[in-house]
Amino acid sequence: MAKSALLKSSIAKKVAMALSGLFLILFLAQHFFINSTSVFSPDTFNSISHFMGNNPLVQFVIQPILIVGVIFHFVMGFVLDFKNRSARPINYIKNNGAANSSWASRNMIVSGAVVLAFILLHFYDFWVPEMVYKYVEVNPLNETRYFAELTHKFVSPVRTGIYCVSFLLLSLHLWHGFNSSFQSVGFNNKYSRSLHTLGYAFAIVVPFGFIFIALFHHFNH
């Protein structure tokens, strides 16, 4: 089969979407792990953040891959959604989607768009100042600044509220997306039930954990 035909095929796009999603799930897990240390030990949080912010492998290899992964996942998501909508030019007058599928599965584009908006805000809040601090202003290394920068962002109740709502939508996105990714890459066997449980647990623990961290810093600092 010609490579161009493979790249255009519906299944290849679906698999690419799934793999980029699984990659972002891994990123989310490590981000959650690092952020959770801020609740227990500001020093640990500072140390890990300093390592992540200054390690050349993380900064110049993993970070660009992550940014490409995020952009690919969102662009592909919107492209596929547009194509899928055009596959039904005339909609049903009465459609009972709730009879056969979950809200989360039918509205991945909605939850995904909210998560995208959140990521843009998150970049504005943390990533852009970090880049300016390190590479534009070229400030000296400061291993203890990260915890204060984190808690400072959660002083505002509006920003904390936006973060919490975004995490709720992230939870819905993961509720369908985690297990859907494995189905897309062809994983459906006797282990699927256990995997589904893991997926649902991840979709609850990680986003609600992030909500807890945001509220914890809002009310304690």
Partner: peptide, 28 residues
């Protein structure tokens, strides 16, 4: 011109013959 599967599972529920989503994973 069919659309792409996003694994909502609606097809499996509405299929009069109960064709399983396992088949889609196998096809992938």
């Amino acid at each position: 011109g069919f659309g792409n599967c996003t694994n909502t599972g609606a097809c499996e529920v509405e299929c009069p013959k109960g064709i399983s989503l396992e088949n889609i994973a196998r096809m992938n």
